[in-house]
C-alpha cells in the first residue's frame, strides 16, 4: 500500500486548470518533496488529498482509502500554508480543540498536548491567545496541531516560507523525527535548500503536471553538469552532443551540457577529438538542486 497514490488526478477551477492529470506514488515512510514554482498546483494537490477540494476527474488514494474519506483523515496531519487559525483561542485550547476533533481520549489528549507544547517550545505561552503570536509561533502551534494524533502521513504546505532560521530548523528536526518513527511526510516547498536537506524523493511540478520524479540521491549525485572549452566547434558537432546528455548550450568556445553520470565524459572526449576539435578543457560539475530546478521547470517560473 502506498501512502499516496494518484492516477490522472485533475482539478479545474472554471476555465483554469490547476492540476493537469497528475499521477504520483509516494511510498510509506518516505519524506517526499513536491517542488514547483508558485501557482504550479502544489497546494491544490494537497487539498485534494485531504478532501478540501474535489477532483474534477481522476483517482486518488490516501493510506489505501479514496481521497476525502473521513476516517482516513484521522491518520493524517496537516499544516496549512499561511498558518491561519482560530486566533481567539489560547495555545492550549487550540490543541485541545484539534485533539477533540481527532477524537483523542481525554487522558491521551492531555499527555499529547503537554508533550507537543514542550516540543515546539510554546509551553511558556500555553495560556496566551494565538492572536498575540508571531508568525513563527503560529507555525509552531500549527505544527503541534498536525502531530496530535501520531499521524502516519503528514502534509506540510510551505512550512518554512517566511520563517527565521530557528523556525526552519525546528521543522527540519520534526521531519527527521517523523521519518524515524516511520511516518510519511509530504512536503510542499519552493525552498530548495530545505528539500535538499530533508527529502528522500522529489517530484518537480509545473503548471499542474509532474515533469519528473526522482530520488534526491540520484538527482544530486547522478546529474552532472559538464563545461568544455574547445576550438573548431561546428554547429553539427554541438548538436551531436545531445546524444550524451541534455540541455546543451554553446557560447563561443564554451559549451555546457548535463549528463546522467560521469561515464559520459570519456565518450564526449572521444567524440570531439574524432570530430577534429581541439579540446582544451572538459570539466564536470555537481549540479545543485537549484540548477536542476531551473533546468526542469524553466526560468519562466511557470508563468
Amino acid at each position: 500500500m502506498f501512502a499516496i497514490e494518484t492516477e490522472n488526478l485533475r482539478k479545474e477551477f472554471g476555465a483554469r486548470v490547476a492540476v493537469k492529470g497528475l499521477t504520483l506514488q509516494v511510498e510509506q515512510g518516505e519524506v517526499f518533496g513536491f517542488l514547483g514554482p508558485n501557482g504550479a498546483g502544489k497546494t491544490t494537490f494537497i487539498k485534494m488529498m485531504l478532501g478540501l477540494v474535489r477532483p474534477t476527474s481522476g483517482q486518488g488514494r490516501m493510506l489505501g482509502a479514496p481521497v476525502g474519506s473521513v476516517a482516513t483523515r484521522g491518520k493524517a496531519g496537516f499544516l496549512p500554508e499561511h498558518f491561519r487559525f482560530h486566533d481567539w483561542l489560547t495555545a492550549s485550547e487550540f490543541l485541545t480543540l484539534h485533539g477533540q476533533l481527532y477524537g483523542l481520549p481525554e487522558t491521551e489528549l492531555k499527555r499529547r498536548r503537554a508533550e507537543l507544547l514542550e516540543r515546539v517550545g510554546l509551553e511558556p505561552f500555553r495560556d496566551q491567545q494565538l492572536r498575540t503570536f508571531s508568525k513563527g509561533m503560529l507555525q509552531r502551534i500549527g505544527l503541534a496541531q498536525a502531530l496530535l494524533n501520531h499521524p502516519s502521513l503528514v502534509f506540510l504546505d510551505e512550512p518554512t516560507s517566511g520563517l527565521d532560521p530557528v523556525g526552519r530548523r525546528l521543522v527540519r528536526d520534526v521531519i527527521h523525527e517523523l521519518r524515524r518513527e516511520g511516518a510519511t511526510v509530504f512536503l510542499n516547498s519552493h525552498l530548495l535548500s530545505e528539500v535538499e536537506i530533508t527529502c528522500d524523493r522529489v517530484a518537480f511540478i509545473k503548471q499542474g503536471e509532474v515533469l519528473r520524479t526522482s530520488s534526491l540521491q540520484a538527482l544530486v549525485e547522478g546529474e552532472t553538469s559538464v563545461t568544455l572549452r574547445a576550438g573548431g566547434l561546428t554547429t553539427e558537432l554541438i548538436t551531436g552532443l545531445g546524444r550524451f546528455g541534455n540541455d546543451v548550450r554553446a557560447d563561443g568556445d564554451h559549451v555546457t551540457l548535463t549528463v546522467v553520470d560521469e561515464t559520459a565524459l570519456p565518450a564526449i572526449a572521444r567524440y570531439l577529438v574524432a570530430g577534429g576539435v581541439e579540446l582544451y578543457a572538459l570539466t564536470p560539475q555537481r549540479t545543485s538542486l537549484e540548477d536542476l530546478f531551473i533546468q526542469v521547470v524553466g526560468t519562466d517560473g511557470g508563468l
Partner: peptide
C-alpha cells in the same frame, strides 16, 4: 469568515464530516 481566512482548513481536514 472561516472560509475566507482559511481557519476552516485545519478543522475540516480532521475526521469530521
Amino acid at each position: 469568515g472561516e472560509i475566507g481566512s482559511g481557519a476552516i482548513h485545519t478543522v475540516v481536514t480532521k475526521p469530521i464530516r
